[in-house]
Simulated scan of single mutants.
Amino acid sequence: MPGVREGDVKYRRQRALTLAFVLAGFAASALAYPDLPARMATHWNASGEVDGTMSRLAGAFFLPALTAFVVGLLLAAPSIDPRKQRYESFRGVYEWVVAGTAGFLAYVHVLVLAWNLDYAIPIGQALAPAFAALLYACGVLLDRAEPNWFVGVRTPWTLDDDEVWRETHERGALAFKLAAVLALGGVVLPDYFLVFVVAPTLLAAAYATVYSYLAYRRREA
Rank of each mutant, 00 (worst) to 15 (best):
M1Q: 15
P2K: 12
G3H: 14
E6C: 05
E6K: 10
G7P: 09
V9C: 09
K10I: 02
A20P: 07
F21T: 05
L23Q: 10
G25I: 00
G25Y: 00
A27V: 08
A32C: 04
P34M: 13
D35Q: 11
L36G: 00
P37F: 09
R39H: 11
S55E: 13
S55A: 12
R56S: 06
A60L: 08
A65K: 06
T67F: 02
T67K: 04
A77D: 08
R83I: 03
K84I: 06
Q85N: 15
Y87T: 00
E88G: 08
S89N: 15
V93G: 07
E95V: 04
G103R: 08
F104Y: 10
V108D: 14
H109A: 02
V110D: 14
L111F: 08
A114R: 13
N116G: 03
D118T: 11
D118N: 10
D118A: 12
Y119F: 14
P122C: 03
P122S: 03
I123S: 05
G124D: 06
A133M: 11
L134H: 09
L135R: 07
Y136N: 12
Y136V: 12
C138V: 14
L142K: 03
E146N: 13
E146L: 11
E146Y: 11
P147K: 07
F150D: 00
F150N: 00
V151K: 06
W157N: 00
L159E: 09
E163M: 13
R166I: 04
K177H: 09
K177T: 05
V181T: 04
L182C: 13
G185E: 03
V187W: 06
V188L: 11
L189N: 10
D191V: 11
Y192M: 14
F193L: 09
L194F: 07
V195H: 10
F196C: 01
V197W: 01
V197C: 03
A199S: 13
T209K: 05
T209H: 11
V210I: 10
A215V: 04
Y216H: 08
Y216E: 01
R219M: 08
E220L: 14
A221L: 14
